[in-house]
């Protein structure tokens, strides 16, 4: 009896299975088809609000985007002492170049790279650079270091989704990918006049 019942939507073809029903099954599949391995637990298979809203064929409407962005904005941790850019650009360079971390073959969840070069051009001399994100060559030189620019950049690095809910950029601070100290080093890499990014 149960079997017959289950077979019915199939017999009717896909138009029979509603979009919601399909979505529920996909969510279940994204859980059932995986197993926890080391630091990569099954909690990773459950979506949070932005992940869920941004997995459709089209992005959410403008109002939903605004709401999501406001919620993400509230998660940003701003430096209490106002020290946004006082890191070491050389450390920042290493973090930007390293794409390692947070896979099931990584033993611990610390010491991750930012993987910036996977998606961005930064040092004009570096040729092996991704193109998923816009070029950041000459970042500090071109934009200056007004409070507004510096604050925006810190926020973008901490939680990219606060400015574009469906951004393809990871949420470095919020997601625990980079520590506050590491983000400050990357900030220095972007803003320090001595950094290769600004040569």
């Amino acid at each position: 009896m149960k079997k017959l019942f289950l077979a019915l939507p199939l017999a009717l073809g896909l138009s029979g299975a509603s979009a919601d029903e399909l979505q529920t099954r996909v969510e279940q599949m994204m859980l059932d088809s995986f197993k926890a391995n080391g630091i990569a637990g099954l909690d990773r298979q459950k979506q949070d609000a932005v992940q869920k809203a941004c997995s459709g064929l089209t992005p959410p409407d403008a109002e939903t985007m605004k709401k999501l962005e406001a919620a993400e904005m509230a998660t940003i941790k701003w430096p209490t002492d106002g020290n946004f850019t006082g890191g070491d650009w050389k450390e920042g360079q290493k973090i930007a170049a390293s794409g390692r971390g947070l896979t099931w073959t990584d033993k611990t969840a610390d010491n991750n790279g930012g993987g910036c070069y996977n998606c961005h051009a930064m040092d004009p001399k570096e040729v092996s650079e991704g193109t998923i994100g816009p070029s950041l060559e000459g970042y500090g030189k071109l934009r200056g270091s007004s409070e507004e620019v510096v604050k925006y950049t810190w926020g973008k690095l901490w939680n990219s989704k606060a400015y574009n809910a469906c951004s393809d950029m990871p949420r470095n601070g919020y997601g625990g990918i980079l520590t506050e100290t590491q983000i400050r080093h990357v900030m220095a890499y972007l803003f320090d006049p001595a950094s290769p990014v600004n040569q």
């Binding site: 399909l22 996909v26 994204m30 869920k52 997995s55 650079e129 998923i132 997601g175």
Partner: peptide
């Protein structure tokens, strides 16, 4: 289901397959 799984963002970096494979002429490094 595969089409939806392809766009299913999840995990520590919010990626879906589509994050890396849904635009023309993009590169990782």
């Amino acid at each position: 289901m595969g089409e939806r799984a392809f766009r299913y963002r999840t995990g520590a970096m919010d990626f879906a397959c589509s994050s890396c494979h849904s635009q023309d002429g993009k590169r990782i490094r």
